[in-house]
């Protein structure tokens, strides 16, 4: 099932939480939803899960509109809300059974599904406890387990790794990645390395508007059209190397790295690469090229660029 969002708008009083956004998520795709607090991520997710009503626009899941077919569509969605609300007084097994039965899992399949989720989410040692006795990380796992209990085709995860320790984060990311091969996954997060590690596509949203949409690589290219190389060239006079690098037709700007006499930063002319020219230059002059690293714009910088204005 795919998700298609068309001109979605949501207002709270005078405030526009989500402003006319459109995007699509295909099956087998993991979409990372990024944005500062209050950007409209959670509101969008709540509209996809039909917890809040849509003001304008529409959401189609598998071709059916959420406005008219919410009741039947909800069975295909697994949702982990922000802050992961849970019934603390319930035992894990009972809780998962309860969720399964609400989602229409047949009575005979519930024990198997519950066991499966306990295994997948690593809850085996804790399975007889009440949810209130669990640590935050384990509660998060219970939250994920209830979202996936009915094997939904669509997973909406609002900050799935919050509160987990680094090992658990890696595990949960792996889990999401594995699941993402067959399902349509939308996840929101503040943690930038997380989107890079898990998501096929990134959507950055700011003040209710989509400000960027693409893979981590395309976003980098968009953010910075020019290639930046960090090179170290030895066995030559730094002054001479500097002037020759600057005279390359592909280089726009060459910078010296302070306290590293043989290291230079080369910014190429837009849409050109200086890699080959630098290599040729070294060969011609018998210099030793001991480092040539393309510097990537960090996702953090892109994020800041796009959301800080």
């Amino acid at each position: 099932m795919d998700i298609r969002i068309e001109n979605l708008t949501k207002r709270y009083g005078p405030q526009t939480a989500v402003n006319n956004i459109s995007f699509e998520v295909k099956p087998g795709e993991i979409l990372g939803f990024l944005g500062p607090n209050g950007a409209g991520k959670t509101t969008t997710m709540k509209m996809i899960t039909s917890y809040v009503n849509i003001d304008e626009g529409n959401i189609f899941i598998g071709g059916k509109s959420i406005a008219t077919d919410a009741a039947s569509l909800k069975k295909h969605i697994g949702y982990l809300p922000e802050h992961n609300p849970l019934y603390l007084e319930m035992a894990i097994m009972d809780y998962l059974g309860f969720c399964a039965s609400l989602q229409g899992v047949s009575k005979s399949e519930i024990p198997a599904r519950t066991r499966e989720m306990i295994r997948v989410c690593g809850l085996n040692q804790e399975k007889h406890k009440r949810i209130g006795e669990l640590s935050k990380g384990y509660r998060q796992r219970v939250g994920l387990a209830q979202a996936m209990i009915h094997d939904p085709e669509i997973l909406i995860l609002d900050e799935p790794t919050s509160g987990l320790d680094p090992n658990q984060i890696v595990e949960i990311r792996e889990l999401i990645k594995t699941l993402g091969r067959q399902k349509t996954v939308v996840l929101s997060t503040h943690i930038l390395p997380e989107v890079e590690a898990t998501c096929d596509r990134i959507l950055i949203i700011n003040k209710g508007n989509i400000v960027a949409d693409g893979t981590a690589n395309t976003l980098r290219k968009q953010a910075k059209g020019q290639e930046v190389l960090q090179v170290t060239i030895e066995d030559g006079d730094p002054q001479e190397i500097y002037s020759k690098l600057q005279s390359l037709y592909t280089s726009q700007l060459v910078d010296l790295v302070p306290e590293q006499p043989h290291q230079f930063l080369i910014e190429s002319v837009t849409e050109m690469s200086s890699k080959r020219e630098v290599f040729k230059l070294c060969v011609q002059n018998n210099w030793v090229l001991s480092e040539l690293t393309p510097l990537e714009t960090k996702l953090e910088d892109i994020f800041r660029d796009l959301t800080l204005n």
Binding site: K46, T49, K74, K75, P81, P85, L86, L88, Q146
Partner: peptide, 14 residues
């Protein structure tokens, strides 16, 4: 108060 209502109403529950 605890937000669990969101959990219930986003499941197949009217």
């Amino acid at each position: 108060k605890t937000g669990t209502i969101e959990l219930l109403l986003t499941k197949a529950v009217t």
